[in-house]
């Protein structure tokens, strides 16, 4: 029997406190330590360093983490498979391929738009392909969707690898591209940071609207159908929403695995299986986690940076394994 579950209010309060601490730490740590008293205090060089250089990136990290864990939550809900996440299901691979094309062939699109637009087209296109395969024969089969996603992810990753090898020589940005693909939060402009807020709210609201349907889907397609949910539309909506979240995350953070897998799982253990509370909780927790990871990436070997995707796997992997063992013990 699992322990008593928390309700959303106290859980969000705990997450909010953790979040404030994480933001404070992240703003203070970097290529140089700046204490909160300094960045909250008198104007000066250090204050400028934090607010001009660090804060936008911290915001981007939160945004990336929130999008990734929301995408993971949606995919796991739709496919009723604990392994489902953007990286397994082709949408991240599609975003990665699109972004690689944008970075390798910069003359293709206006530079300001190439990366996010191509990442979005890649994630969107891959998700549509998976849905199309799942739809063949009329009946929806989650297992088939999942397999199609895994196969497509393999194909797209291979294409990306091929592109990198063929176009990667002295005359291209190879090192920057490889590093970005291992995960690296980019620094947005202040105006772009302000744009994150509405996006997050919109994504969260849309996901929250799907929550009852995803809960019903957890009981099986037939049960969901009988509860009055239009399963194909529900699945398509959730997958495309997850693709959108993945594309946004990839275009600002590169390819960062594990966040979309770990965060929804941990929160499900903590809050229970209902998607209503899980949507906001996952977004906040994923964002906070990513803020912490990016802080380590920026500051642990400053002035050098570590790709954030390596950190999520190296730190997140063992943490997740330990949690799995711990839960096994308790049950």
């Amino acid at each position: 029997m699992t322990p008593a579950r928390w309700s959303l209010g106290p859980a969000l309060a705990v997450l909010a406190v953790t979040g404030v601490l994480a933001f404070g730490l992240s703003l203070s740590l970097g290529a140089a330590w700046v204490s909160p008293a300094r960045w909250l205090g008198e104007p000066g060089l250090e204050r400028e360093l934090v607010w001009v250089w660090r804060a936008p990136r911290v915001a981007a990290a939160f945004f990336v983490g929130a999008c990734l864990s929301l995408a993971g939550l949606l995919f796991q809900g739709v496919f009723r498979n604990p392994l489902a996440e953007p990286y397994l299901l082709g949408s991240a691979a599609g975003a990665g391929l699109g972004a690689a094309i944008a970075l390798l062939l910069p003359q293709l699109l206006p530079p300001a738009w190439s990366l996010p637009v191509m990442a979005f087209l890649g994630a969107w296109g891959a998700s549509w392909l998976v849905l199309a395969v799942g739809r063949i024969g009329g009946a929806w089969q989650s297992a088939r969707l999942l397999l199609a996603g895994v196969a497509l992810a393999a194909i797209l990753s291979a294409l990306r690898g091929l592109l990198l090898m063929v176009f990667g020589d002295e005359s291209t940005n190879l090192r920057a591209i490889v590093s970005w693909q291992l995960g690296g939060v980019q620094t947005p402009a202040v105006a772009e940071v302000l744009g994150f807020g509405p996006w997050l709210l919109l994504l969260g609201w849309a996901a929250w609207r799907l929550a009852p349907g995803l809960d019903a889907l957890g009981l099986g397609d037939a049960a969901a159908q009988s509860l009055g949910h239009r399963v194909p539309r529900l699945v398509a909506g959730a997958v495309l929403l997850a693709a959108l979240a993945t594309a946004l995350a990839v275009s600002w953070g590169g390819l960062i695995g594990f966040v979309g897998l770990i965060v929804p799982h941990v929160l499900r253990w903590w809050l229970g299986p209902l998607h209503g509370p899980l949507v906001p909780a996952c977004m906040v927790a994923g964002g906070v986690l990513m803020v912490l990871v990016d802080t380590v990436a920026r500051s642990s070997m400053a002035p050098s940076e570590i790709p954030a995707g390596l950190l999520t796997a190296v730190i997140g992997g063992p943490f997740f394994l330990a949690l799995l063992l711990w839960r096994q013990d308790r049950s």
Binding site: R57, L103, P111, A112, S114, L115, T172, N173, L174, R175, A176, I177, S179, W180, G184, V185, Q186, T187, P188, G254
Partner: peptide, 11 residues
């Protein structure tokens, strides 16, 4: 700067 992505990954 030997290579860079648009907004980061400065090499």
């Amino acid at each position: 700067e030997t290579a860079a992505a648009e907004r980061g990954a400065f090499q």
